[in-house]
């Protein structure tokens, strides 16, 4: 199996603090991969390095065989890596549909003059973006809210809209940063099914950060555990559950 995303000895330091230390990750194409760890373990920092938000101090990130280090977020997005945020970052003043449409912007080939002079290319592009956005809103079960402003959505739907927007970039890999945070049991079950559907139906590889053990164990094929910036375990959910180091990290040692 080829690995879609591979990092080697990824390290980042903020002043004296080494937030992530020698992090190695291999995510295969079509996999549902979980990255877990206690609070402050450096999971989100890893995401920020993968998507070009932070520049790693050391180590490399390869995506689809191409070096990602030194790319800015825009270039990483063009490469086919999309993400959501732990603290939801939607475009509040835009409508739900328009939020999803912004994801499709990067593949547009029109220039400003097409839009200013309303050429046929402009209308084709609008239709393309609307079609993609509607399809994904439908996929996430938000199609009947397409006309609302994003800020009017309830919390659970905001999470889903963020995923829809990320999927609209037509990524190869989607990184979900704690998508189930703040959701109730019913919503979590629905979300698990959706995440599985993203992988099975849209053929997008999923890299998931999550606190909810039940959710991660239920859907991920492989899990890597991070603690204080270091990998402490890697394996199937079953192996992870029985790993003494993981239990110690989560429950505390003697």
């Amino acid at each position: 199996m080829t690995s879609l995303l591979a990092t080697e000895d990824l390290t980042i330091r903020f002043g004296g603090l080494t937030a992530v230390d020698g992090f190695c990750l291999k995510v295969h194409e079509g996999e549902l991969f979980g990255l877990i760890g206690p609070n402050g373990a450096g999971k989100t920092t890893v995401f920020n390095m993968l998507t070009g938000v932070y520049l790693p101090s050391e180590g490399t990130v390869h995506c689809d065989g191409r070096l990602v280090n030194g790319m800015n977020p825009v270039q990483v997005a063009r490469l086919g890596v999309s993400r959501t945020f732990q603290n939801i970052r939607l475009f509040d003043e835009l409508s739900v549909l328009e939020n999803a449409m912004t994801g499709a912007h990067q593949h547009s080939k029109i220039n400003l003059f097409d839009s200013l002079f309303r050429t046929p290319r402009h209308y084709r592009e609008e239709k393309r973006q609307r079609d993609i956005a509607y399809r994904l809103l439908e996929f996430m079960g938000l199609e009947d809210r397409a006309g609302l402003a994003a800020k009017q959505l309830p919390y659970g739907h905001r999470r889903k809209l963020e995923i829809a927007r990320a999927l609209a970039t037509e990524p190869k890999l989607i990184c979900l940063d704690e998508p189930a945070a703040g959701m109730n049991t019913g919503e979590k079950a629905e979300l698990s099914a959706l995440i599985r559907k993203i992988r099975d139906e849209l053929k997008v590889t999923v890299l998931l950060i999550e606190h909810d053990m039940k959710l991660v164990m239920g859907i991920c094929e492989r899990i890597q555990v991070l603690d204080y910036g270091k990998t402490i375990a890697l394996g199937t959910p079953k192996e992870i559950q029985n790993d003494p180091k993981v239990i110690e990290a989560y429950l505390g040692g003697e």
Binding site: A77, F91, D92, G103, H105, I110, S115, L116, H122
Partner: peptide, 25 residues
């Protein structure tokens, strides 16, 4: 016309959340 095009949406996206806009490409 600018406001109601992909460019207008991109401009508003940058205003609303620059990091998210960049991550969207």
């Amino acid at each position: 016309y600018l406001q109601r095009s992909t460019f207008g949406r991109a401009l508003i996206a940058i205003r609303e959340n620059e990091l998210a806009a960049e991550v969207m490409g």
